[in-house]
């Protein structure tokens, strides 16, 4: 195991870093939803644009919530690449290549659900494996919060039914702008 993968397995050794990671997860998720909302606006998928914008706000609130939790001591600041993630990026980010311009809320929520589950797994593992007992306890709290998010998304999904085959059919050919 290289030094880097060892660090990625357990990058969090103290409370301050735990808070920074938890915060970064929400920030990256919010940032990703913002990109998706922009994409859907440009693609004229207004329903999804609104949904992603809402998700961006929700994740932003989660990030704010973590800042509150940190209290007056605040959260240590790192550069965007100082974080070591097992999967390359923060666990709650969506893969942009899974996106389709005609996708529906059902698809989007499936992706969001998977993201929340990855975040849960991240915290749940730290809750067990962190060296520091306090870090374990905090990770457990975050894992529980992610469980709530999972429930929320699952409830949302129930509002929609899976789209029929051919949902991605486009009656027009692609444009060629330049």
């Amino acid at each position: 195991m290289t030094e880097e993968t060892k660090a990625a397995k357990n990058p969090v050794e103290d409370m301050a870093t735990m808070l920074a990671y938890a915060h970064r997860i929400e920030v990256e998720a919010a940032e990703r939803y913002a990109i998706l909302a922009d994409q859907m606006e440009i693609a004229n998928n207004t329903e999804l644009a609104a949904l992603f914008r809402k998700m961006e706000k929700v994740e932003g609130k989660h990030a704010d919530h973590i800042i509150e939790k940190a209290g007056p001591e605040g959260i240590p600041q790192f550069g965007p690449l100082d974080y070591r993630w097992e999967e390359g990026e923060g666990p709650e980010t969506l893969d942009l290549t899974d996106i389709h311009y005609k996708m529906t809320a059902w698809h989007a929520l499936q992706l969001a659900l998977a993201a929340e589950k990855r975040a849960y797994t991240f915290f749940a593992r730290l809750a067990k494996e962190a060296y520091d007992k306090d870090v374990q306890a905090l990770a457990r709290e975050f894992a529980e919060e992610e469980e709530e998010h999972i429930e929320f998304v699952m409830k949302e999904i129930k509002k929609y039914s899976a789209p029929e085959a051919g949902w991605d059919e486009d009656l027009d050919p692609p444009n060629h702008p330049d």
Partner: peptide, 25 residues
């Protein structure tokens, strides 16, 4: 933990022009 907060955020390097790439690109 770095002594100083980073001077820059990734968003500082992104303009307000929204890409016209296909979603998924």
């Amino acid at each position: 933990v770095t002594a100083e907060a980073p001077k820059r955020k990734a968003s500082d390097y992104i303009s307000d022009v929204k890409p016209v790439w296909c979603p998924g690109c």
